Simulated scan of single mutants.
Amino acid sequence: MFHGSGLFALLLMVLEWTCPGLSSPLRPICDLRVLDHFIKEAWDAEAAMRACKEDCSIATNVSVPLSRVDFDVWEAMNIVEQAQEVQSGLHVLNEAISSLQISNQTEVLQSHIDACIRNIANIRQVLRSLSIPEYVPLTSSEEDKEMQKVSSISELFQVHINFLRGKVRLLLANAPACQQGVS
């Protein structure tokens, strides 16, 4: 069962990262199967929301990051700019998904919301392991051009999946820490 072993692996990562007695830094997590696990959980959440109608509505539209990738633009960006775009998008997704916790949700929906929030935190931990720069807030004009609005929880989770499959995967696959052993 990956979920239990995934939590154990995450605990080991956190302990390795925070334990002051260790002389070595956190080892890079370059295996894209870790990301595939988060994508699968996001996919499961989105599938559950498609079946949910009235209990899964959003009172107001929420902002989410653009998930489509213009490869010419992406390739022209340096790693810091790519990291900023991914970190900013993860921040916005976390805010949007966290806003769902305010309303009275079903137990199933709440478990998917909690899982998505944990997964975003775990993805941020993976990015830290790769020495990807942390999130730095953008100005509102910069942020607005990179956003779209969604009107349902299903749409929100679909953007979440696409963001992970697109920009996050591209960043992880090309992270300098994962390229060091490649000749």
Rank of each mutant, 00 (worst) to 15 (best):
H160L: 07
S129V: 07
E54Q: 08
D31I: 03
I79V: 13
L109E: 06
C30Q: 14
V182Y: 13
L90E: 02
E142H: 12
I39H: 05
N94S: 12
I102M: 07
D72Y: 12
S151L: 08
V69C: 07
R27V: 14
E142Q: 15
I102S: 09
W43P: 02
H160Y: 14
Q101V: 03
C178W: 11
N61V: 09
Q110A: 09
V64Q: 03
M13I: 10
V64H: 05
V69T: 04
P25H: 07
M77R: 13
H3E: 15
I153E: 06
E142N: 12
V136W: 04
S140T: 14
V62C: 11
N61P: 07
H3A: 15
R27P: 12
G181H: 13
E54N: 08
G181E: 07
F157W: 10
A42Y: 00
I120N: 04
G89F: 04
S63R: 11
A45H: 04
V34G: 02
I58K: 10
G21H: 11
V62H: 02
M49G: 04
I123P: 01
G181Y: 09
D72V: 13
A59H: 06
D144T: 11
L93M: 05
A45N: 03
K167T: 08
V126W: 03
V92Q: 10
C19Y: 14
